[in-house]
Design a protein around this nucleic acid. Structure first.
Length: 420
RNA sequence: GUGGGCGUAGCUCAGCUGGUAGAGCACUCGGUUGUGGUCCGAGAUGUCGCGGGUUCGAGCCCCGUCGCUCACCCCA
């Protein structure tokens, strides 16, 4: 019996796992430096949290959740997204009782039982933020700017930011009446009618040209915005312009989660095929109340780490230089190993990346693996070195060696690497 | 969930109209005594995704199944 990973899961292993780590770390560092604090949450929650929060009629809830009964007969669901779980934790622990907005971030695996495809796994990785308790449009701009900065920090260029406003509840109700009337006048096939019944906005992002043409004259939600929503949306746009963040307004953008209101946005990458959304988010007025909290507005985003990595690979911007080993130690003989182990311990305590050749390999093959590891420096420890207490520090890129005492290895190496 | 393509060594793939498996890269060792990236030599590795069927004989044909992939759908 040969075991395989469950269908549709994405696994990261060397050497690509380093790239994954780099992508996630880069996105997270943009978030952390903006004052967001970690929320480490369960990957499963009470099923009802998602049906109420995300919306029972959404595709995500109605046909994509991993739901099961636990041993106590409780209905449990593997989290399909991050926002409602984050808000549940904020409410449960009273994080919204202090100074507002409450700014938190998360990072981890999410689960959706979809048909797998490139960029779409049944377990996928997201990092996200939630800022709860302020309806300041400047906060919308900050949230968008963080995601934008994250993608740019990765070196991505071939993506665009699309934004729109879904307005408030009243806006959507008014628009819905007109949109339904409009759709009723169209000649559509059954499947499309069924989709429209669940969410008429869906027809706006249908990929078929016929439908696109038909929807060309459909009433747009943006034209129904209340004065307040309109001003908020304009303020957001003006902040983004000040920040020199380019965006396009896409009045046909559709979100599959029910909780979105007001400012809504999506980052789309050009080289990813069908699964091109690398991040998205928006405001959610009413969601806090919906799941039992205070009536606070909030805004957040989720960024797809898997897709961001795919995008970075497609653009050829993966930073492989970030993974190099500083020093490779080659011990020759039993006594040398003892010394190598203790030297590595000391160097690592000084934040240096150190690796050792294990096994009794020939010097030649040890040098080969040092070379392949991408080590910047190599030190050989044999009988000579042990008796003199000094080693040759070899710089692999140039082949130059400098003689240093074992005792001063830490300082020598540290200063050399500083100017690397 | 629906439809199309694919599934051969760790990786990329070759394998003609069915006769019982190969290349390149990677890997290990070596090219004399303690120094890598080139070159040369040697070596190891596969139940040809899995299960059935047709056949004297199947990696090549048929069915099923699992998985990957692309599109729909959906979204991160």
């Amino acid at each position: 019996m040969k075991y395989q990973a469950p269908k549709g899961v994405i696994e990261y292993f060397p050497p690509r796992s380093r790239s994954f780590e780099w992508v996630r770390g880069t996105l997270l560092s943009q978030i952390k430096r903006s004052g967001y604090q970690l929320l480490e949450l369960p990957v499963f929650e009470d099923t009802e949290l998602f049906t109420r929060g995300v919306g029972a009629s959404t595709d995500v809830v109605s046909k994509e959740m991993y739901t099961f009964l636990d041993r106590g007969g409780r209905s449990i669901t593997l989290r399909p997204e991050g926002t409602v779980g984050a808000l549940r934790a904020i409410i449960e622990h009273g994080l919204d009782r202090g100074a507002l907005p409450t700014k938190v971030f998360y990072s981890g695996a999410f689960f959706r039982a979809e048909r797998p495809q490139a960029g779409r796994g049944r377990q996928f990785y997201s990092v996200g933020v939630e800022a709860v308790g302020s309806d300041d449009p400047a906060l919308d701009a900050e949230v968008i700017a963080i995601a934008d900065a994250g993608f740019k920090a990765l070196g991505l260029k071939q993506f665009r930011l699309e934004i729109t406003s879904l307005g408030d509840a009243q806006t959507r109700a008014l628009h819905r009446v007109d949109l339904l009337a409009f759709i009723e006048g169209l000649d559509l096939d059954e499947a499309t009618i069924a989709r429209a019944e669940i969410n008429p906005l869906r027809l706006f992002d249908d990929k078929r040209k016929e439908i696109r043409d038909l929807m060309d004259k459909a009433p747009l939600l943006l034209d129904y915005l209340s004065e307040e929503s309109r001003q908020h949306f304009e303020a957001v746009q003006s902040y983004l312009k000040d920040l020199k963040i380019e965006f396009t307004i896409n009045p046909r953008m559709v979100r599959g989660l029910d909780y979105y209101t007001g400012t809504t946005f999506e980052f789309v990458h050009n080289l990813l095929g069908a699964q091109s959304g690398i991040g998205g988010g928006g405001r959610y007025d009413g969601l806090m109340e919906q799941i039992g909290g205070q009536p606070l507005s909030g805004i957040g985003f989720g960024l797809g780490v898997d897709r961001a990595l795919l995008a970075a690979e497609a653009e050829g911007v993966v930073d492989s230089a970030a993974f190099l080993t500083d020093l490779y130690l080659i011990p020759l003989g039993a006594q040398a190993k003892t010394v190598a182990l203790s030297i590595s311990q000391e160097l690592r305590a000084h934040d240096l990346t150190v690796d050792i050749v294990f096994g009794d390999r020939s010097l030649k093959s040890a040098m080969k693996s040092a070379d392949k590891s991408g080590a910047r420096y190599v030190v050989i420890i044999g009988d000579t070195e042990l008796s003199t207490g000094s080693v040759d520090l070899k710089q692999m890129s140039t082949g130059e060696t400098t003689s240093v005492t074992l005792a001063s290895l830490v300082t020598t190496l540290t200063t050399k690497l500083l100017t690397w």
